[in-house]
Nucleic acid binder design. Structure first.
Lengths: 132, 132
DNA sequence: TTCGCTAACGATAATCGTTATCATTATTAT
DNA sequence: ATAATAATGATAACGATTATCGTTAGCGAA
């Protein structure tokens, strides 16, 4: 089902990937759109969506399925996320391995596991200190 | 932010919870709607959505954030899910613990972790046998 | 270098899942 | 039974995403 993409180069796609890779706040498509709009005034939101799915298909970015709106991540190395109950932000959680999660899951599941994602919920550093 | 609900009893809510708890295919709101429609012809899709969020707030069911459409699960005990790349189905993966995932995450994350969800991707039993 | 093909674009309409509104119905305490 | 109001059904509204379509631009061949 994976499509073949990016037969041609485009400034918009470059800008979108650059933008995503230079930030760590896991922006939504709209966040990226508004972030690039000053630099590329003619940019269309449709183009952002189009390229984000394309880049995802090409394995260059990751889509984070948080409630409601999709967020994106330019870091394709294995890591997890925490969605803050208080501020709604999404934060990185880096662990040097998956704690044997896939291994264990493969043992108990009669199918084939090719990947996984983990979304923690709780309070980010700032909100935890602030609210207690 | 958790709301107080269910001050009154309703046949619709009972039916929705019953339906969800008696099946293991992690249906969408619409799936439940069509499943109950023959039994409760006057049922409205809005009522299904309303009660699903209410039941979720009450901790009686779980919402699974898969791509696009939300799915629901009547089993509130800790377990994980696999989304089949081939057929699109969502399947249970039961493990007797979290493999130390939360423990490890708490060590490396400067905030407070209160919960987590894991979504594996791959092939379900049937699709794995069929396609290889 | 220009030409032609068509991928990618921008603008916007359409779609889809979900939520809000509101008049009506039904549950429950009195 | 009655009154108060939670919950309902119908449907409009909403927000995120995708599809459409005419135009633009990347790139290989002439």
């Amino acid at each position: 089902m994976r499509k073949i993409h990016a037969q041609r180069h485009s400034k918009q796609r470059d800008a979108i990937l650059d933008n995503l890779c230079s930030r760590y706040d896991h922006p939504t498509a709209e966040d990226i759109y508004f972030s690039l709009k000053p630099k590329i005034p003619a940019l269309s939101l449709a183009t952002v969506y189009r390229n984000l799915s394309q880049l995802e298909d090409d394995g260059k970015i990751i889509r984070i399925e948080s409630a409601g709106t999709a967020r994106y991540d330019g870091n394709v190395n294995l890591h997890y996320h925490l969605s803050c109950i208080n501020c709604g932000g999404v934060f990185d959680i880096f662990m040097d391995n998956d704690c044997g999660l896939c291994q264990k899951a493969s043992e108990v599941f009669d199918g084939k596991i090719t990947g996984h994602s983990v979304l923690f919920t709780g309070y980010c550093s700032a909100c935890n200190k602030q609210a207690g």
